[in-house]
């Protein structure tokens, strides 16, 4: 199977799963932004998703995308390590080489760490108990997402941590988005600067959207 056996195939898997996760981020960010303006609307969206079959199917597809992206990142990194068993004593990069492109695995690992914390803050308190059929201690314990946002982001330390995490995601995406198009062959000399610009704009929109929710959550709860 060329997608698994060849270097280009493995990169195609990274690209397709990466772009899928970017689409999810856009959806997630758009959904979160509604919480700034109307907690009720946000709760309605949460309720629409909840533990319904389509939300569970979506969650499983999303989890598969994350797992594939991470597994292939490690496979590629291991092969890259084997390709240069002895490193240089001194290696410098020309200005064209961006910092993000050199550190995608490290950035990815930080994102993964943050994802664990994020899931424990929200998913474990909303969709998971619904899946497990846990009885809520009070009305709306698992469904009032808008309130959970305010409670979580009332802590300044958590807010700073989240914004730092969003910055790492931004950094990862500035390289990842255009790189996905390059790896799937959808790039050329004309489109390269355009794709880079689109990657920067989209990454920044995602960063600002998520950050705005954290800031609003902090301000509304203090």
């Amino acid at each position: 199977m060329w997608l698994i056996d060849s270097s280009i195939g493995r990169k195609v898997i990274m690209s397709v799963t990466g772009l899928f996760l970017v689409l999810f981020l856009i959806f997630h960010m758009s959904m979160n932004v509604t919480a700034i303006f109307s907690g009720e609307t946000y709760n309605d969206i949460c309720g629409f998703l909840g533990a319904n079959w389509y939300a569970l199917a979506g969650t499983m597809v999303l989890a598969a995308g994350v797992v594939l992206h991470i597994v292939f990142a490690f496979i590629l990194s291991y092969r890259n390590y084997k390709a240069r068993p002895i490193g240089y004593s001194t290696q410098k990069n020309q200005k064209e080489v961006e910092l993000a492109s050199q550190n995608m695995l490290v950035l990815g690992l930080i994102i993964l760490l943050g994802l664990g914390l994020h899931l424990s803050h929200f998913w474990a308190k909303m969709q998971l108990p619904e899946i497990l059929g846990t009885t809520p201690a009070y009305e709306g314990e698992f469904t009032n997402g808008a309130e959970l946002i305010k409670i979580t982001f009332s802590n300044l330390g958590i807010c700073v941590g989240y914004i730092a995490w969003f910055f790492v995601i931004w950094f990862h995406l500035t390289h990842g988005i255009w790189s996905a198009f390059q790896s799937t062959g959808l790039d050329n000399k004309v489109w390269f600067p355009r794709l880079k610009m689109c990657a920067n704009i989209l990454s920044t929109i995602i960063f600002l959207g998520f950050t705005a929710v954290v800031v609003a959550g902090y301000l509304q709860s203090n």
Binding site: S7, K82, A83, Q94, E96, S101, W178
Partner: peptide, 22 residues
């Protein structure tokens, strides 16, 4: 050519553009 490149143990492209720059 790609199969031979993979067989010989070269690494994967992560689009750092270091090759183009150098």
């Amino acid at each position: 050519m790609v199969a031979k490149m993979d067989e010989l143990g070269f690494g994967n492209c992560t689009n750092t553009r270091a090759c183009e720059a150098e």
